[in-house]
């Protein structure tokens, strides 16, 4: 649980150079009344090589694949041709990145981003006069 480097910085992002080519991890995003849950597939990434960063309203998920391969390994068939995953999302203001929770287990990242209290839905009573 939350053994992930969750970094929050208020500094405005400088105009970033075009980042190096990276794999785009597949994700599932599910929203319920209390927040958003994101699942991302990052196989081959260890906890130490996973980074979840929030900067302003930008959520970045990054990871580096580290496989134990024997010496002199020659690749004969490659479907995963890059060693870096990266995916960026823009959060909306009703989400509370301060209370983000992360789990990482066997290459699957689960992020829970709760909504700020006042943004949670309330039933509005309609009174008949």
């Amino acid at each position: 649980m939350s053994n992930v480097n969750a970094v929050r910085s208020q500094a405005p992002a400088e105009t970033p150079a075009r980042p190096a080519e990276a794999l785009l991890p597949p994700v599932d995003v599910v929203e319920d009344a209390a927040g958003i849950t994101l699942f991302a597939d990052l196989p081959g990434v260890s906890r130490e090589k996973l980074g979840v960063h929030i900067e302003g309203d930008t959520l970045t998920i990054e990871g580096e694949i580290s496989l134990s391969s024997p010496e002199g390994l020659e690749s004969t068939h490659t479907e995963v041709g890059l060693a870096v995953y990266r995916r960026v999302f823009t959060l909306s203001k009703e989400l509370d990145p301060e209370r983000i929770a992360a789990e990482f287990n066997q290459g699957v990242l689960k992020l829970r981003i709760p909504k700020v209290e006042h943004a949670q839905p309330r039933r509005i009573e309609i009174r008949v006069a």
């Binding site: 597939d41 081959g44 002199g72 020659e74 004969t76 995963v80």
Partner: peptide, 20 residues
């Protein structure tokens, strides 16, 4: 799962990227 296959003179190595 996505797969990478490689070989060395002594072995064949198969990596299946099957998270979760």
């Amino acid at each position: 799962p996505a797969m990478n296959v490689g070989s060395t003179p002594r072995s064949v190595e198969i990596y299946a990227f099957a998270p979760g």
